[in-house]
Design a protein around this nucleic acid. Structure first.
Lengths: 334, 334
DNA sequence: TTGTAGGCGTTATCAA
DNA sequence: TTGATAACGCCTACAA
């Protein structure tokens, strides 16, 4: 079906070995032979069979990104960051998804099935035993967000992000600050949920504001519709508040803004709103959303560079965790 | 490094052939042998080497999605649609990017280099000669958006979408309708640009409104910032208008909304706004954006199903172009 | 500077 | 029901 080295070699009157050397631009081949073979490869649309090459070399030069199905804007930006590093590297990128609960199996399938030499694992609960096994077999896993001590990873400082958001609200004169976050039960094990709550509490404490658990709204997901329900829930519960920190993300904050507007509540005059993520959504709302920027693109780049460094056995990156500092982006909502 | 069939076979006291048959759940193997081997595979973390399998079988069971680097929300939803079909199929998905101008080469690299058996090509200018070559070699390409007569593809009816948007504005009493779109020069060859302009013009004509080229704003890209410039440009040019159809997409419409608000122009009271795409952005703006829904997720599903049908040689899908009808989504902006 | 030969792990064919 | 053998296309010693 497709052209092989053998065919090229036959026509050029050399052996496949020579063709192979030309592919690597080896200086052991004469310029004349090279040129002749290159021309043939072009004319005949020769492209090396990656499967054969991988099989022979025992590696794939491929980095995998593994996440759950149905990803959102944050993952999109992260993957764009990964790609931006890949594009100027000799590696390829391959994205995989997994169902919750099948993470370990999927890791093995990818790494032991020789689909990739390294996996970048996005926000998944990973099994330390599996990570140890993979390490023992010379396979690499870079954890994102839900990192594990002793394994390479990249993450944001969610505590600090939440602290900054809460502090900003307090500094601008707010005293009664509501807080929305993913359901603790559903998302248990995801570090960002715990850390953000801690950051919020600490900022309150440092400013002598008492924590009130009625101010916490837990959400089953991160949609705009669910964001609207934050407003409704607080209203139904007759909570008095002058600010809300939507640690559940920009999308939910956007929903809150819409529902507040529908109820003729002014933002930020009546209620100040801070989101989380600084995805494109935060720039699109009116008023513009003050939020915590998580540089997903840069984090993707860092994760990819870390994976490459591991594959190339550089230094002692084997248990390095890179922490990114979030940044407060002030717009109009707070 | 990793476990191979040979090792499993040796320990089980059978030959690799038998192990291979167990992998395919062949009924030629006795239940007892199967069970023993399955257990061993589990215990030893055996996963078949995909490269070896691909090489031997001469196919990859993989579908590629090819697009340009740095994709946006639309592509994200499209790919989610593709994945939703893949997840319940025996196929794998692999995403690739290409630089503009290298499309043909990338297609060949993927298909002839055996990285995938079919390519879903997103909004790229493809070379018919290359498509013919691939077809001759039994490789499949599904075109998305920029389709070509005689080749399989999926697309939206952009003419109809633009017509609907414009007609909606006219029916709601607007007479002077501005129009924003990607730069014609830069995006020449992309069918949606031409088709949307035609739809806009036709709707005007059918309603006895004269086309005025001063009403057209051409944009170099699709960002929110660029969307703000639509407002500024029209203002600087002293154009009188009571509505705008941002055929350049929701993101640019969101930018327009923000700049209009900053200039104390009411939407929709002073100016009605219609966007294009119905991505998540349209739900996040205030006022909510009336827009043309392009079901990207469903289109991804259709593209993937078409690719699978081609690979499985079903019917005469070889030159089938599936056209999706857009839908007007009314929110508050018009 | 080029050629020979063997094998990577899997699967298909044929034989037992 | 299982085994022996060869081959997919490429790469890498080593030989010439």
């Amino acid at each position: 079906m497709s052209v092989t080295m053998k065919q090229i070699a036959a026509i050029a009157g050399v052996t496949p070995t020579t063709v192979s050397l030309v592919m690597k631009d080896s200086k052991k081949v004469s310029a004349k032979t090279k040129e002749k073979i290159r021309k043939l490869m072009g004319d005949m649309d020769y492209y090396p069979d990656i499967s054969a090459s991988n099989l022979k070399q025992g590696k794939t030069n491929t980095i995998a990104v593994l996440s759950t199905f149905l990803h959102g804007i944050f993952k999109m930006e992260f993957v764009n960051g990964v790609e931006s590093v890949i594009i100027d590297s000799p590696y390829r990128l391959n994205q995989f998804y997994t169902r919750i609960g099948e993470e370990a199996k999927k890791h093995k399938e990818i790494l032991l099935g020789k689909m990739a030499d390294a996996v970048i694992t996005m926000s998944l609960n990973t099994d330390p035993a599996m990570l140890h096994t993979m390490r023992g077999k010379g396979k690499h896993v870079v954890l994102v967000e839900d990192v594990l001590e002793g394994f390479p990873g990249v993450k944001f400082d969610n505590f600090r992000g939440a602290y900054m958001a809460t502090e900003h609200l307090i500094k601008s004169g707010r005293k009664k600050i509501a807080f929305s976050i993913a359901e603790f039960k559903m998302y248990s094990g995801h570090q960002n949920v715990d850390e953000r709550l801690k950051g919020y509490k600490k900022a309150l404490k440092d400013n002598n504001i008492e924590f009130d658990k009625d101010m916490i709204v837990e959400l089953p997901n991160y949609t705009i519709e669910t964001g609207r329900s934050i407003f409704t829930t607080l209203k139904n519960n007759r909570i008095k508040y002058d600010a809300i920190f939507c640690a559940s993300g920009d999308l939910t904050a956007a929903g809150f803004l819409k529902e507040a507007a529908a109820n003729k509540i002014g933002v930020p005059d009546d209620i100040a709103v801070v989101g989380y993520d600084d995805t494109i959504i935060a720039s699109a709302t009116s008023p513009g959303l003050t939020t915590i920027r998580q540089p997903a693109f840069q984090m993707g780049q860092a994760a990819c560079r870390l994976a490459i460094s591991l594959m190339e056995q550089k230094s002692g990156d084997n248990n390095r965790i890179i922490v990114f500092n979030p940044e407060l982006i002030k717009r109009e909502s707070a």
